[in-house]
Simulated scan of single mutants.
Amino acid sequence: MKKTLILFAFSIVLISCNKTTEIKEFKTAYINTTKLMEESEESKDIEAKYKEKAKVMGNQLEAEVARFKSEAASFKENAMKNGQAWAQQKGSELQQREERLNYAQQAMLQQLQQESGVEIDSLVKSYRKVIKDYGKEKGYDYIYGTGDVASVLYAKDSYDISKEIIKMINDKYTSANKKDATSKEGK
């Protein structure tokens, strides 16, 4: 009886050790996001649009700069002829104009960056949606992004641990704030 019981226990151990655990393979892919942005037609069109806009705006500013340079050159010639008081007043005016031109140039660059940034952000959002839909349609578990910024562009919802991480971070932040408030009250 003991031998049978030992053989039975031993066979159960062998059977449980022989069970193979099923390893699921993930279907993954990647996208070179830099190449995507460089080679997509919509991205090229946006870039061309803002290059043209910069050229038009730059031409207007260049005309102002040329007039300024011309006046600055004539200022140097006329400074000796018209005296020190005239030179100081005209020099001050030219300096103020130069500052205004610099501000105008900075404002133009900021405007172009802001406008193009909005369009590029919108483009990136639409590309992410396309990638997500493609991933779902083709049965991918993960689609990674490479290039300037590497990130996961698509993952099945079941692999998303964002809620757990956010809860953990928020709980830690809340408890740290409570400790700070308690230590401040105790002082």
Rank of each mutant, 00 (worst) to 15 (best):
Ala72Trp: 05
Asp141Ser: 09
Lys172His: 04
Ser92Gly: 13
Phe75Leu: 06
Gly186Pro: 00
Gly117His: 07
Lys178Thr: 09
Gly147Ile: 14
Ala107Gly: 09
Glu25Leu: 11
Glu93Gln: 15
Ser158Phe: 05
Ile6Gly: 04
Glu99Ser: 15
Lys136Pro: 03
Ser151Lys: 12
Phe75Asn: 01
Asn78Trp: 04
Glu62Pro: 01
Ser183Asp: 15
Ser74Lys: 05
Leu36Pro: 02
Val13Ala: 15
Gly145Cys: 02
Ala87Thr: 02
Ser162Lys: 14
Lys35Tyr: 00
Gly145Arg: 02
Ser43Thr: 14
Ala48Glu: 14
Asp133Tyr: 07
Lys132Ala: 14
Asn18Val: 01
Ala29Phe: 00
Leu14Ile: 10
Glu71Pro: 01
Ile143Gly: 00
Val152Trp: 13
Leu94Arg: 09
Asp133Pro: 03
Ile161Leu: 10
Ala73Trp: 00
Ile143Ala: 02
Phe10Leu: 15
Val118Trp: 02
Arg97His: 04
Ala155Met: 15
Thr20His: 11
Gly145Glu: 07
Ala54Tyr: 13
Tyr127Thr: 00
Lys138Gln: 15
Ser151Met: 13
Tyr159Ile: 12
Ala87Asp: 09
Asn32Gln: 04
Leu7Cys: 09
Ala87Glu: 08
Glu164Ile: 10
Met80Phe: 10
Glu71Val: 02
Glu47Leu: 10
Leu36Asn: 02
Gly145Val: 01
Glu137Thr: 09
Lys187Phe: 04
Ser43Tyr: 08
Met37Arg: 06
Gly117Arg: 04
Val149Phe: 12
Lys35Glu: 03
Asp157Gln: 14
Glu47Trp: 03
Asp160Val: 05
Thr146Glu: 01
Tyr50Arg: 08
Ala63Tyr: 06
